[in-house]
Design a protein around this nucleic acid. Structure first.
Lengths: 133, 133
DNA sequence: AATTAATTGTTGCATATACAACAATTTATT
DNA sequence: AATAAATTGTTGTATATGCAACAATTAATT
């Protein structure tokens, strides 16, 4: 056997993701949203007005997943949606306001993670990301 | 703003995990289990006979998640379970046989990922893992 | 222009995950 | 030994994810 079970890259990425997500959740306790939803709001802040598929493309999320995530954020009032078959979505004023409120919290999380990872850790992460994508 | 949204470590780890999990799923199409379930079977192969909490500890999984994951694998017949309140669980003969069948497939996946990541990528991953845990 | 093909979004179904509340058991205290 | 405290497992609820099948629309062919 070339590798040991504990080397499994899939398992380890999943675990790291869980650990970091747990940390995010701790910081987001007082907010109406989850870490995934925050990611989508941040993405839309950058993207502006787009078809929802663009979000999936950017985040490697399956169509159906995007559909439901968007739907939830829409129900919460954070999104605008044109009423075509493929509606363009964008942040509502409430969504934009929430992003503004979230940014400092997110920066705290990032600082916390930076303390753990260091400059080299960030560079390593970017390397791995490039190679995997 | 110190960081850009696309630098978000949580979001990026989640995405990398999704991408790699998708790849795993492709390889596991002909098997009766998911990539998560495979991880647990592999863990039990190493652990032997343990309380299920040990699995959660090892993989950073919440109690309730472990409970349900174990329950599913048990229903599939891959686990043995003593009938105490905190039963000791272990691989059943079927589970052990499945692990044996899975190993070469898993090695293929690992090779594939190794081709992408290289020796340095693996080292980077380990570094990040150490720093985050 | 009409038909065919491809794309995009939604819904049903299954698994994965965490939190909260609870139940059962084990460990500590007195 | 009896009671209190801590630990462990389960179940209800909510979100996250992907696949398959379908519907609606758009793009391509003829």
């Amino acid at each position: 056997m070339k590798y040991e079970f504990q080397d499994c890259i899939g398992s380890r990425l999943r675990q790291m993701s869980r650990i970091v997500d747990n940390m995010f959740r701790g910081y987001l306790q007082d907010f109406d949203i989850t870490e995934n939803q925050m990611t989508i709001l941040f993405a839309l802040k950058k993207l502006g007005e787009v078809e929802q598929g663009v979000v999936g493309q950017l985040l490697s999320l399956e169509r159906s997943t995007v559909s439901r995530n968007i739907s939830m954020l829409y129900k919460k009032g954070y999104l605008l949606k044109s009423d075509a078959y493929r509606p363009h979505i964008s942040l509502s004023p409430e969504g934009a306001a929430l992003v503004t409120k979230l940014v400092p919290v997110w920066e705290d999380i990032m600082s916390n993670l930076y303390d753990k990872l260091g400059e080299s850790g960030l560079a390593y992460l970017k390397e791995i990301e490039l190679k995997i994508k």
